[in-house]
Amino acid sequence: MPEAPRRRIDATTLRGLAHPLRVQLYDALVTYGPATATMLAERFGESSASTSYHLRQLAKHGFVEEDPVRGVGRERYWRAYPGGSRLDRYDLSDGASGEAARLVVDEFQRAQSARLEHWLAVGYQQVPREWGAATMNATSHLRLRPEELARLSAELTAVVDAWQDRVADRDAVDGERIVEVQVRTFPVAAQDVP
């Protein structure tokens, strides 16, 4: 089965995501997989009515959908839209779109940073030693031109995408865990910029 294309977030769809709780809900579905509004309400300390409303808004803008293989009757499971999404801040840098894009990126960054900080603080103590030994936390600094940075970013994305394809059909089984891959490529600020 071909993989769904990565969805490009434009100014219209951005409005459906530009709410802190919606970003959190979407991030949780991307990270941990399908869940009900009730499960997500418990995770975030919200009411089921609130999470249900925000999930419907996310669905309206194409970020999430009902999971067709889970749930029975009134128990509705939601999942992130297959293929994921991509936000280009340069395309959305003006006015209200710029503010909304900043909110969305900041919320995703907060969630990613929180998971990394948890791992560095106590997470490694909560997993068997082989899991800790298999991780990496590395920083490299390269002198690149813009086209080289674009190529490096594309190659790193291709590696992660290939692994996603390789394990996409797996259900949770013993010996497996969700592994977060955080890869960032960006130009470093000039030395005189704080």
Rank of each mutant, 00 (worst) to 15 (best):
L87S: 01
P34S: 14
E147T: 14
L103Y: 13
D174R: 15
A80G: 08
V188Q: 11
D91E: 10
L25F: 14
T12C: 00
Y32W: 15
R86W: 04
E117G: 01
L21S: 11
R129H: 14
A18W: 03
A150L: 10
A162I: 03
Q24E: 13
A154Y: 12
R89Y: 04
T36N: 05
M1W: 08
M39F: 07
I178Q: 00
E148A: 12
R151G: 13
T139P: 00
V193P: 06
R129S: 12
M1Q: 12
P20G: 00
P20T: 05
A80W: 04
V160F: 09
F186I: 07
V72N: 01
L21F: 15
G95R: 09
P146S: 00
V30Q: 00
R43N: 00
T13C: 03
P34M: 03
Q57P: 04
Q24K: 15
Y32R: 04
K60C: 03
A172G: 08
R151L: 13
I9T: 05
A28H: 07
D94Y: 11
L156F: 12
P146Q: 07
L149C: 11
G62A: 02
Y32H: 09
L87I: 05
D10G: 03
L149T: 15
R177F: 06
R143P: 08
T157P: 10
A4M: 05
G16P: 10
E180L: 12
T38K: 11
G62D: 02
L152H: 07
R115T: 05
R110K: 15
D174G: 15
